[in-house]
Design a protein around this nucleic acid. Structure first.
Length: 545
RNA sequence: GCUUCUGUAGCUUAAUUGGAUAAAGCAUCAGAUUGCGGAUCUGAAGAGUAUAGGUUCGAAUCCUAUCAGAAGCACCA
């Protein structure tokens, strides 16, 4: 990773020559005629301190002899020397281990609700963020903060007792539980006492009532075993699955301390924290003395910071919770639950809407289940592969699930997605299939070939562009660690460049042995980069398609 | 009503967080093929970023107003 070196070198020389501490920002131009790296530091220094721009450029140039520098419109364009990027064939870049401990919270489904396409964004983007951080050497872990506590269990237990049949439920747990949940909400309108009863059950759950706790355990087990099937299909593994139930006791301690320290006050029998003037306070204990999501989330911060010693917590969560989470962060600060070195990062992703822009709703039963989507994708993939005489179910899965994931990952996390079948299952253009296809092309070219040692000759610009992009892989990852769409775009770009080279030059028929071998090595390097990059998006490569 | 977010080619999205000529894919039109895998490649056409002001050497990005859409608004998560 060159950016770190360039940043500190320039920062140092400015401090030394001008006694100015200025943040140096290095960007990765996509247009390589602006260099492999570029910075506007001279413009910044000039507008603030009126330094001599030519002189400043000279200082910087002298401090970075391993690059070719030019100054244009007072941007400094930094070019990697050809001998440097030629070198990537020989050296394997090592990644420095970092002390920073990072936790990514994502997916976080509610127990007893079907895993719908609405969970796709947080699950897939969160997982990619986790993978990238880990790859970059951060001490990284992940946590599926499942919703396994609260009034919804009272409702479910009420519904099971009234209308449920254990045998029927066990055959198809989530669907049956969801039916019961939907029924509860439609009956609740006619029978207001049902909600009172449900709340009583959830209070009994917090009080460890044996019968109620047994129901709760069953419901959680049924759901988790179904969720785990989905996760294994999506190739997602969680190191931690604490869930809200883990935190309700810690939450009580936090609430008591908050009252004692006069940070929280009691209003209408509930315990609340005022985070800002003129804004509604955050409720951390309900008037029936039970805890709720806000108190669990506060307890979660405390546990992660104090017990797990996490430095950076990344929340991958839907926008509908954004304002609440920000308020909860403020309350956590008032309560001193984290210290100055802790970073709380909120990644709030957009909605997935049904065709026509309608919002999904579990209560009304208006959802598209993830399993349905995966099934459709498989069928489409199967048909296309059959034309090529491939029937391997493993290949079908890797392509189908890759396409589903990529469709989410190629967008910025905050953008809303209107779900349309033909767009999600489109296999042409900006898709994972295009990248996987490029990989297969490379693989197929190198099949039965051994690359002999020879000189590296980069004959054309497109080859240089491709190599220079591959050289910057880690720099791009650093940029992409909170926005995997940057990595997705990067991989598309690498693939486009390779396909251009492939179509322009017949590599195997090339007579100049050095040029031929260089192209084979480029092919090899492209393959490695694509495989690694896709892996960080949670997408697999295939050997044929 | 208050708070927050969004508005970029016909459509779906990018734009390294205030930088260089706003970048791709789909769709449209015109081309490449007995080829190392055409799920490919080349080219054309297509927006000056909802609107009107402002700040700045520089604005899709910041500020103000207006229009349109979405989300959140105390005991659900």
């Amino acid at each position: 990773m060159d950016i770190d070196n360039i940043t500190t070198t320039i920062g140092d020389i400015i401090l030394k020559k001008y006694n100015i501490k200025e943040k140096v920002e290095i960007s990765l131009p996509k247009d390589l005629s602006h260099g492999d790296y570029s910075t506007n530091i001279i413009l910044k220094l000039y507008s603030k301190y009126k330094i001599d721009r030519e002189q400043c450029f000279k200082y910087i140039q002298e401090s970075l002899p391993q690059y070719d520098l030019e100054i244009m419109n007072f941007f400094i364009n930094i070019f990697i020397k050809e001998e440097s990027y030629k070198n990537i064939f020989n050296s394997k870049e090592s990644i420095k281990k970092k002390n920073e401990k990072v936790l990514v919270e994502y997916s976080s489904p509610n127990i007893a609700k079907p895993f719908s396409i609405g969970h796709l964004t947080t699950t897939i983007i969160g997982d990619s963020i986790y993978r990238i951080y880990k790859y970059l050497g951060y001490n990284t872990t992940n946590d599926n903060h499942i919703g396994d506590w609260g009034v919804q269990f009272g409702k479910l237990i009420y519904a099971i007792k009234e209308w449920g049949d254990i045998n029927t439920i066990e055959k198809d747990p989530i669907n049956e539980l969801n039916k019961l949940y939907v029924r509860f909400h439609s009956e609740e309108e006619n029978n207001p006492q049902s909600l009172e009863k449900a709340k009583e059950y959830s209070k009994q759950l917090a009080d460890n009532n044996k019968e109620i706790t047994d129901y709760w355990e069953k419901i959680v087990d049924w759901s988790m075993s179904e969720f785990n099937k989905t996760y294994s299909l999506l190739d997602i593994k969680f190191e931690n699955t604490y869930g809200e139930s883990f935190y309700y006791k810690i939450a009580q301690d936090i609430i008591n301390k908050a009252i004692k320290d006069k940070i929280a006050v009691i209003e209408d029998n509930a315990v609340v924290i005022y985070t800002e003037k003129e804004k509604k306070p955050l409720i951390i204990r309900k008037s029936d003395n039970t805890t709720l999501y806000a108190s669990h989330d506060l307890a979660t911060i405390q546990y992660r910071v104090q017990d797990l010693k996490i430095d950076t917590i990344i929340y991958e969560i839907g926008v509908e919770q954004k304002q609440y989470i920000e308020q909860m962060f403020k309350a956590a600060k008032l309560l001193n639950l984290y210290n100055k070195n802790t970073k709380l990062i909120l990644i709030s992703n957009g909605f997935i809407r049904l065709p026509g822009g309608e919002k999904m709703s579990t209560r009304k039963g208006k959802t598209i289940k993830l399993n349905t989507l995966i099934e459709e994708a498989r069928i489409k993939t199967q048909i296309l592969l059959k034309e090529r005489n491939i029937e391997d179910p493993d290949i079908i899965d890797k392509i189908a699930i890759g396409a589903i994931k990529f469709n989410v990952l190629k967008r910025h996390y905050s953008s809303d997605i209107v779900f349309e079948w033909d767009k999600v299952l489109n296999f042409e253009g900006d898709t994972s299939v295009y990248i996987q296809y490029t990989y297969v092309r490379c693989l197929s070219l190198l099949r039965n070939i051994t690359i002999s040692d020879s000189n590296i000759i980069l004959d054309t610009n497109e080859e240089k562009y491709l190599l220079r992009n591959i050289y910057r892989f880690q720099d791009y990852l650093d940029l992409a660690k909170l926005s995997p769409n940057i990595l997705a775009e990067y991989l598309l770009n690498i693939s486009r460049l390779y396909n251009l080279i492939y179509s322009k030059h017949n590599i195997l028929k090339e007579e100049n042995i050095d040029i031929k071998n260089t192209r084979l090595k480029i092919t090899q390097k492209t393959m490695e980069t694509i495989k690694q990059g896709l892996e960080l998006l949670g997408i697999n490569t295939v050997e044929k398609m």
